[in-house]
Computed example of a mutant assay.
Amino acid sequence: MKKRKIPMRKDLLTNTMQPKKELVRVVVDKDKNISVDPTGKKSGRGAYVSLEPDKIAEAQKNQVLEKSLGVKVSADFYDDLYAYVDHQKARKELFGDK
Rank of each mutant, 00 (worst) to 15 (best):
Q18V: 10
L94W: 10
R9W: 05
V85C: 06
S68W: 03
D80R: 09
D76Y: 02
Y48C: 05
M1P: 09
V36N: 01
Q18I: 06
V71L: 03
G46L: 06
L23G: 03
D76I: 11
N15H: 13
V49L: 06
R45V: 09
D97N: 13
A57F: 12
M17I: 08
K2G: 13
I6S: 02
K55F: 10
L51Q: 08
G44C: 03
K89V: 11
K89R: 15
D11L: 07
D11K: 03
D76R: 08
F95D: 09
R25S: 07
K89M: 14
K2H: 13
Y84G: 01
M8V: 05
K89H: 13
Q88I: 02
S50N: 14
G44A: 03
D76P: 02
D37Q: 05
A59H: 02
N33A: 08
Q60K: 15
A83Q: 12
E66C: 03
D97E: 14
K10Y: 08
K92T: 13
P7I: 04
V36Y: 00
K67M: 04
S43H: 07
A83Y: 00
G46S: 09
M17T: 08
K20G: 01
A75R: 14
Q88P: 03
G46W: 04
N62H: 12
F95V: 11
R9D: 04
